[in-house]
Amino acid sequence: MSSPSRAPEYRLLAELESTFDRLIEQVEVLVETWESGDHAAWAFGQIDADSHWLRQALLDVWYEDGQDGRITRSHIGLVAATPLVLEKVEAVNAAKEAFAALLAGIRRDQPALLPEIKASLPFRHPVLHDHLQGSGLARLHLKQCWRSIPLAEAPVARVRLAWYASGRSIKRLTVRDAEQKLLTLDTDAPHVRLQLRRLAGLPDSEPLAQVQRQAPLMRANLFYREPLADGRTRRAMNVALPLFLPSTNGRLPDHNLPPARPPETRLRARRRDERLEETAFLPSLRVYRYRR
């Protein structure tokens, strides 16, 4: 008999399970709809871009052994989508949004449920449970569950794919913030003590920047057949999942073949107005000073 004190948790889990079920079902409907027609596809680094590849890409919701939780795996490809297929893509993305919204509420109000969620949801669907057999895949990767399927909003004349390897995120810190972060490290270590002394020489009002280098990603440059209502003729978008492209005849537009690997060195020139110093001020935290 279940504990009355856990009744709200059970209701949340039941609602999440139902939302997850709808998500998986919508993915299956999308793949089956695409498979039933004469629709072309291309998969980066794959020989065959068939329904098996598409299903695997859209249902890849797992942590691999040793995978960094901040990193998601990519499945890059192009998929021709007739109006009916586009409708199914939108249904999947709506289900993903509902799943993400419910998870955000659980993360905020019942964070202790998250490990149970990651461990139990996969067993609800045989197609997912099969992944667990000897594959080192045992937990849901929630970010890979809710990330949207990329979709072009209008017919495209051509697509140009290119690696983007110089991205970074910058978080503004105060001197006090940086000090607190350093104090969580081994303060007996000489390099940490050196950085604390260096930080102590700054005025409290000086802003700092913590930089996180982002993993290389594939970017698609779309060139529309006709200008959109707002006058745009092109769009750039990051593509971690297969990109669905509107097509009345099931064919793909012209597209290039990007290099197999991202460039090892930065290809784009540094911006002249780059505001951060070149050398990290606090290397252990990847914290930089702003140029003066």
Rank of each mutant, 00 (worst) to 15 (best):
V27Y: 00
V27F: 00
E28K: 07
E28T: 09
E28N: 10
L30K: 02
E32M: 07
E32A: 15
T33I: 03
W34K: 02
S36Y: 00
S36M: 05
G37Y: 03
A40R: 14
A41V: 08
W42Y: 11
A43I: 05
F44V: 00
G45T: 03
G45D: 06
G45Y: 06
G45W: 07
Q46C: 05
Q46M: 08
Q46N: 04
I47A: 12
A49G: 09
A49K: 08
A49H: 03
A49Y: 01
H52I: 13
H52K: 12
H52A: 13
A57T: 06
L59F: 02
V61A: 03
V61T: 08
V61F: 13
W62Q: 06
Y63H: 15
E64A: 10
D65E: 15
D68Q: 08
G69K: 12
R70L: 13
T72E: 02
R73F: 06
S74D: 14
I76D: 02
G77L: 10
G77K: 10
L78S: 06
L78F: 10
L78K: 06
L78D: 05
V79W: 07
A80D: 03
A80K: 04
A81H: 04
L84M: 03
V85M: 08
V85S: 05
L86G: 14
E87I: 01
V89M: 07
V89T: 08
V89L: 09
N93V: 05
A94F: 02
K96W: 01
K96V: 01
E97N: 10
E97F: 04
A98S: 14
F99A: 04
A101S: 14
L102A: 11
L102I: 00
L102T: 03
G105N: 13
G105F: 00
I106R: 07
R107C: 01
R108E: 13
R108F: 03
R108H: 09
D109I: 01
Q110S: 15
Q110C: 10
P111L: 07
A112T: 07
L113W: 02
L114N: 02
P115A: 09
P115C: 09
P115S: 09
I117Y: 01
K118D: 05
K118L: 12
S120C: 06
S120E: 12
F123E: 08
R124E: 04
H125C: 05
V127C: 13
V127S: 15
L128W: 10
H131C: 11
L132T: 15
Q133S: 11
S135E: 14
G136I: 08
